[in-house]
Design a protein around this nucleic acid. Structure first.
Lengths: 319, 319
DNA sequence: TTGAAAGCGCTAACAG
DNA sequence: CTGTTAGCGCTTTCAA
């Protein structure tokens, strides 16, 4: 900048202002300075600015990213969430720092102005670790769980309720919920589901499920068919589980949806292109990402931000 | 640091060295300083270090991230790639800066020590834009296309050849290739496929395909069935296209695989759980991510790095 | 093994 | 509208 200043015949601070499009500098001067900068291939030093301004214009996004395909956070969700976050944040001058939460975070992550945690999942400890960084924090997950944190999540209770209503409308009376309620979002889906059914004196079966995978869903349903085969509707807490469930049902000669109605969750392309195409509860991850981004930004800039619940809706397909 | 220095009764530079585990400092002093730092909740300022050291310990990952589910870069690929990259980079002290390549990149991205471009796709212009940042660059995509760049990609030619061999072993003689060869990686898959077939005097049909989606695959096959229905094998350049193709085939009463063998590409969970489970060419995105990360790191540290091709293998399932 | 001096490149505050 | 001064927090000389 000092060099540019000499070349352009102004002071360094004027160069600084000109490059920032400050209104404090004459339009003509500004143009000249910018031209000189361009000609000389000037590269701005963001670290110097950050040091001076005491901020990094950076938001850390913490993802649980195990190398396992069928995991809960796999599939398109986190990527869409990331897409929304990145879109919103970069368009307001922030950068997105991706972190895997394994071992101590690299220093640049600790220097982030804010943090977005994707999926508190079964990892309440992850939340604690991240909170200890002492940065503005926004979490994607089950909203009701954490009053002290800003949490964005989709309306899992409503999602569950929608499925219950659908089953009731179809005249189904022996429903099953498939999913481990230790997972906060799953617990909410079950709550909405069970509460609505309770209004009609119906209590869903909740067989144990050992995971989030297609095969976990299939196993659970196979076991259930052994012990309590008399069900006519199944609500799976994820499309993956639903697909596993359908597979197990078909194996045992149960027709879908004639004998058993099945509805999944997440409305993944996987479910949509499945044969039969899976009915599912849709949540808009892209919007969710944008919202998460806006909330950290608000927090960073000292404004208030509240937890928020995004609408869900039921997408009916063949099952 | 100056404060810590006073408290610990040493100089600032000694604090600096102690916190970095420098061997220049007495073990006892180091322990004391680190303890003081911990007790007082000292937060290291990474920007100051970066300013001083003239680097950012940051790698920008540029992704094409349009808000469309069925896009090429959707699905689990980029996430797995990202997982591998993040894993490798964070474990060596670098941070991963995620960027969407829309409009001018935020300054912190330009300050990255290196850049990984995920998918040159049909966007050769994306590569030009990124190259103009003048940073060490590694690209994920079609290796043969760019001699001047370091490109990591999986062995698309071999993948295509494997499929051809499989079809030949099955005695199929009228194969189709489904995919737009304007896409560099697709072109390589076709090349490997067609070359192998040519050795047996067979030339595959290459109907036009308008996109990367399930529906594009279905459309293309419907049109093909009108004009040239006499094919007995189909190699789709992605699982998405393959699924669309199967759907169209079943619609028109063609059995898979009895009448038409179908093999996809990418070995996605979507394909694996499809009914019928899709045979597909597998590529290991996690390893690829790690490799990409190692190569930028090498480049950043002034070492040489060459383009590299990752092995692919064929996963046979029902189709 | 420790420290003093100096400066990385930028910008807020305060004149002019 | 422009400039001077000072300092953000760290680390690499160089000297003790």
């Amino acid at each position: 900048m000092a060099d540019l200043a000499k070349i352009a015949g102004v002071s360094a601070i004027t160069v600084s202002r000109a490059l920032r499009d400050s209104p404090l500098v004459n339009a003509e001067t500004r143009a000249r300075v910018q031209e000189v900068a361009r000609q000389h291939g000037y590269a701005f030093n963001i670290n110097a600015r950050n040091l001076r301004l005491r901020r990094s214009m950076t938001v850390a996004v913490v993802v649980e990213m195990k190398p396992s395909l069928e995991r809960q956070m796999s599939g398109p969700y986190p990527l869409e969430l990331l897409g929304g976050i990145t879109q919103e944040l970069t368009s307001s001058g922030y950068s997105v720092l991706l972190t895997a939460l394994q071992g101590p975070p690299p220093p640049s992550v600790q220097a982030a102005d804010g943090v977005i945690l994707l999926g508190q999942g079964a990892h309440e400890d992850a939340m604690h670790a991240v909170r200890s960084w002492g940065r503005p924090l926004v979490v994607w997950g089950a909203v009701s769980r954490h009053e002290s944190e800003v949490v964005v999540g989709s309306d899992n209770r409503r999602g569950g309720a929608l499925v219950a209503e659908r089953f009731l409308a179809l005249g189904r009376s022996r429903p099953v919920f498939l999913g481990d309620p230790a997972h906060g979002e799953f617990a909410e889906r079950l709550a909405g589901f069970a509460d609505t059914l309770a209004g009609y004196g119906i209590q869903p079966l909740t067989p144990p499920v050992g995971g989030f995978t297609v095969s976990a869903g299939a196993e659970a349903v196979r076991a259930l068919l052994e012990r309590q085969p008399q069900f006519d509707a199944l609500f799976a807490a994820s499309d993956l589980l639903a697909i596993g469930a359908i597979r197990a049902l078909l194996e045992r000669g149960r027709r879908v949806p004639e004998d058993v109605s099945v509805i999944g969750y997440d409305d993944t392309p996987l479910g949509a292109t499945y044969v039969p195409p899976l009915s599912s509860v849709h949540q808009n991850f892209l919007d969710a990402g944008v919202l998460l981004a806006r909330k950290v930004r608000a927090l960073i800039e000292g404004e208030a931000a509240d937890s928020e619940t995004l609408p869900t809706h039921l997408v009916l397909r063949a099952t």
